[in-house]
Design a protein around this nucleic acid. Sequence first.
DNA 1: TTGATAATGAAAGTCATTTTCATTAATTGG
DNA 2: CCAATTAATGAAAATGACTTTCATTATCAA
Lengths: 163, 163
Amino acid sequence: MKETAVLERFIEGKGLRHSKPREQILSVFLSIEQHITIDELWAAVRKKHPGIGYATVYRTLKLFAECGLCSEINFEDGTTRYEHSYGHSHHDHLICTSCGKFFEVVDSEIEKLQERLVKRYGFQLQYHRMNLYGTCRNCRVGIDRRAARTGVPVHSGKGRAAS
Amino acid sequence: MKETAVLERFIEGKGLRHSKPREQILSVFLSIEQHITIDELWAAVRKKHPGIGYATVYRTLKLFAECGLCSEINFEDGTTRYEHSYGHSHHDHLICTSCGKFFEVVDSEIEKLQERLVKRYGFQLQYHRMNLYGTCRNCRVGIDRRAARTGVPVHSGKGRAAS
DNA sequence: TTGATAATGAAAGTCATTTTCATTAATTGG
DNA sequence: CCAATTAATGAAAATGACTTTCATTATCAA
Ligand SMILES: [Mn+2]
Ligand SMILES: [Mn+2]
Ligand SMILES: [Zn+2]
Ligand SMILES: [Zn+2]
């Protein structure tokens, strides 16, 4: 099913009303393949549809989340981001703490072990969030160069996750 | 080394000053084995030491984080929590979405696979955050009972993590 | 004891949401 | 099509969790 159809069905199913702003926001949202903040999406939406207000983007994104078109992600930087979720399967994130570059990753073995882990505690897993923070190869080159200049090594060695 | 000593050394090392509020906050913080919010800690601190202000608790917690006495955690509920980190090794969290009960967990196999995963992308892991959300056994009993009464099944079956 | 200055408490400021409310726009029964 | 009903919207105000400011207090080295 197409995303617009997903939205329409959801709206009808809940006795809500169709509206232009929602269609326009969906169209712009789908055109951007990113982990986008409300402000960023609002800016993009306004370029094509100047009248639309922040609150409408905000409310519409919540609606999209409800009908499975998007999901919220949190990289602990103080603002929520949204990503497409319809037709996109589950994935986790690998984020460079230096330049912000990220990858979407899945490791099926880890996913299996997560199931095993929660079962040990009598839990039934609903969802999980796994963010791996580190430095990408590019940034390490820069860091090493700086370290060579200053004589101060910046990263410690093996770098096993802590805290 | 004792936690108070960790704090003292850090303070001396940075040329800061000892102060009663910091000692008092540390003492109360250490007495509470929880994932506590600033407000909760402030409330607990004020019971014993009424004069202490929110800002001081806030600043002191940041200080503790700097010297490794506590670390921040984020359960995506809008407020940051703090947990003891001195003498506590890395762990992840298993959280019941129904009652809020949680477990601190570690799966060494997962930790190894995380290393392997990031290497594939040329990253050097610094730290990670893994939160597993689900329903605990107790809550499922309640849910099943409700379902039996209403005839509406609440959880779907296998329940593999999504989103 | 004293001067320099770090620490503190109260209050004000930020900033990302979240809600309110008057107005606009879908929907629906005539 | 038309009017009544009420959901949706935009602008602005309100929230809430931090963060910072600033006048005052407490430390501490000399
Ligand atoms: Mn993603
Ligand atoms: Mn913990
Ligand atoms: Zn990078
Ligand atoms: Zn529970």
